[in-house]
Each structure stands twice: as C-alpha cells, then as structure tokens.
C-alpha cells in the first residue's frame, strides 16, 4: 500500500440482527485505486460489511469515511438525520448487487440514466450520451432499448455495473456479483470488473472467485464470525495464510468434495 491517504476507512463497525451479532468490530482501510476482496464463509458478515459501507445497512456503532464524507454511526441520530447521513455516504459509492436488482419496468438505457437524470438532474442528452458510453464499455451498447428480462444473467449484471458507474461514484462496491450466474456467464462479468480495476477504479468486492482475488486484488480480507481474521496481499492471505481458520476455509473452497 502506498503512502497516499486512504479513500475509504471503516472503523469498529458493529451490527446485530436481533440476538445475532453479525459484525463484532470490523476495521477496513482501502487506498485509492486499489481492489479489496472480502472472502469468508457464508454468514461471516462480509455482505453486511459491504452494505454498511453505503449505509444500506445501518451499523449499530462504528465510523465509515469515504473521501471527505464521514458518518459516525455511534451517535444517537434521529431518524431524519440518519436518513440524510446515509444518503450522503451512499452517494460516494456505486453498488452492484448479487441479484442485479435492475428496474424491470425501464429499458436498459433508462436503468442507467435514472440516477443521473432523476436524482442528479443532469441534462438528459448529456446523461444519455454518457450512459451509452458506459453501456459500450460493458459491451452492451446494442441492448440499450431492450428490457432487462430480454438479457442473459451476465448481461443484466453488466448493466448493473453500468448503472452503478453512471452516478459517478468515488468507488465501486460489488456484492457477490457472479454468485447468481450460470458458470459460463461468470467470465464476462469478471472481465468487466478486471477492466475497471485496470483503469484505476477503487473497488471493494465480496466474492468466492479465488482466481479473481489472486489476479486482481491488492488486498484480501478473510472474515469469519463477524471479524476480519486476516488481511494482506493475496499472495500472503491466499497462498500462505497465517490463521488456521483461513487455511480451513481456503481448503474447503479449492477442494470442496
């Protein structure tokens, strides 16, 4: 990691759902232009961490800072203030969901322009031109006028990426973007993500794709039981994990049967 100040910082994030303590104090630091991959068994809290970074999940305590926007969830916010703070934080990042969550009643192009036009009030023509460029970047310029249901799962997910990029975020969050896809469609989505990484996007990715982690990640964080058990460069965490829990998890992933 370089000497520049981090773009994203999460400190001591905790979150419970009822009696279930999903996050028990998570710290994460992401330098600009780097790719962080979160791995870990299901239920380890990695998706909750990601969703806390853009306040889709409200942490019980802890602090999230992206760029110069910082929200301290330990403060007793009123409902209204919490909503405003969440919106401020959310505007900093683009989110790609496991189940894409495209708007089914809007065309592919309208899915991408919805944020820029309706929320950011950018001129329609400018937003359309930019959206078409984004669709071209994910290889789907020819699908602009179709509805999401007319696309394959991989294409839908690439539209999801274009939609997230369209709000001009400072970093991109990916929540298991390939987990719901047929195996032969995974590659096209990972290829787009790899391109973004090459272009210098700051990305935080929750995934089970170990090859992607090995090739693209600058840091890998292994989560278990609501904490980050181990983190570091992929070569260290994935090849020579220091923790027994990490070793067992990687063993199960690489050699499932």
């Amino acid at each position: 990691m370089t000497g520049t100040s981090p773009l994203l910082q999460a400190r001591a994030i905790t979150k419970s759902f009822g009696d279930n303590r999903v996050l028990r104090g998570v710290d994460l630091t992401v330098a600009p232009g780097t790719v962080t991959v979160l791995i870990g068994p299901s239920g380890s809290g990695k998706t909750t961490v990601l969703r806390s970074l853009n306040a889709l999940e409200t942490p019980d305590s802890g602090l999230v800072r992206i760029g110069d926007v910082s929200v301290d969830f330990s403060q007793p916010f009123s409902r209204k203030v919490r909503r405003r703070e969440a919106a401020r934080l959310r505007a900093q990042s683009g989110m790609v969901f496991q189940s894409h969550n495209l708007f089914p009643h809007l065309s592919v192009l309208a899915n991408v322009t919805e944020g820029p036009i309706v929320v950011q009030r950018r001129p329609k023509e400018e937003a359309r031109t930019e959206a078409l460029a984004l669709l071209d970047r994910v290889g789907l310029a020819d699908k602009a006028d179709q509805f999401p249901y007319q696309l394959s799962g991989g294409q839908q997910q690439r539209v999801g990426i274009a939609r997230a990029l369209a709000i001009r975020p400072r970093l991109m969050l990916f929540d298991e973007p390939t987990s719901a896809l047929d195996p032969e469609l995974v590659g096209e989505v990972l290829a787009v993500m790899k391109d973004l990484a090459t272009e210098g996007w700051t990305m935080v990715v929750v995934t089970h794709e170990m090859r992607f982690a090995r090739q693209v990640a600058d840091q890998v964080a292994f989560m278990d039981g609501g904490v980050i058990v181990e983190q570091g460069p992929p070569a260290a965490v994935l090849q020579e994990p220091a923790q027994e829990r990490t070793r067992r998890f990687l063993h199960r992933i690489i050699d499932p049967i």
């Binding site: 009643h105 309706v118 950011q120 709000i167």
Partner: peptide, 27 residues
C-alpha cells in the same frame, strides 16, 4: 415489489418519495 428494488433505487441516490414514484409504484 422485491426489497432489492428500493435498495437499488437508494444506491442511485433516490429518496423515499422518488423511489415510490419512479420505481415501486409503477411495478
């Protein structure tokens, strides 16, 4: 309407009323 729709709307910056008007009610 699946919860993910409102979440996706939130991630592109929509507030409650806009989400309702543009995303949830049409569906």
């Amino acid at each position: 309407v699946p919860k993910g729709q409102a979440e996706a709307a939130a991630t592109v910056g929509m507030d409650y009323v806009t989400t309702l008007r543009r995303i949830v009610l049409p569906q």
